[in-house]
Design a protein around this nucleic acid. Structure first.
Length: 111
DNA sequence: ATTCTGACGTGGG
DNA sequence: CCCCACGCCAGAA
């Protein structure tokens, strides 16, 4: 086991795990952080596998528009939005309010 | 083995 | 400015 734990997903998990509370990140930003800025799709795909990992707050990851595109993949319908609002993020109609203020760049983790 | 889709992003018309 | 198409990589049918 753990032979291929260092998959494309693992990289994404580690980055997403670094997302602080009350902050959100975008697939493209993460994709770039892992070294594949053009594979943003895979980031979202990796999140699907993140269902097996509890340390991966996928609800904090949205597309570059700040839209909760993946909220449909969560248990409920507004679960993702509830989690974000629970962290102090205002979300209206799947759209994060002040996305620019809550946006957290994985490349700026060392800031 | 092949085909297609998939929680995105960027570029071109 | 808005709409369309393409590119990326990997997993599932």
């Amino acid at each position: 086991m753990a032979k291929a734990d260092v998959n494309f997903f693992e990289k994404v998990y580690q980055v997403v795990r670094q997302i602080p509370e009350g902050r959100v990140s975008s697939y493209g930003a993460i994709a770039r952080a892992i070294g594949s800025p053009q594979s943003a799709r895979m980031v979202g795909w990796a999140m699907n596998a993140s269902h097996n990992v509890e340390d991966v707050p996928a609800h904090r990851v949205v597309n570059r528009m700040g839209l909760l595109t993946g909220k449909h993949h969560f248990d409920g319908t507004n679960l993702m939005q509830q989690l974000l609002e629970n962290e102090g993020i205002e979300v209206i109609e799947n759209q994060i309010q002040g996305f620019d203020e809550v946006f957290w760049d994985p490349n700026q983790e060392g800031v």
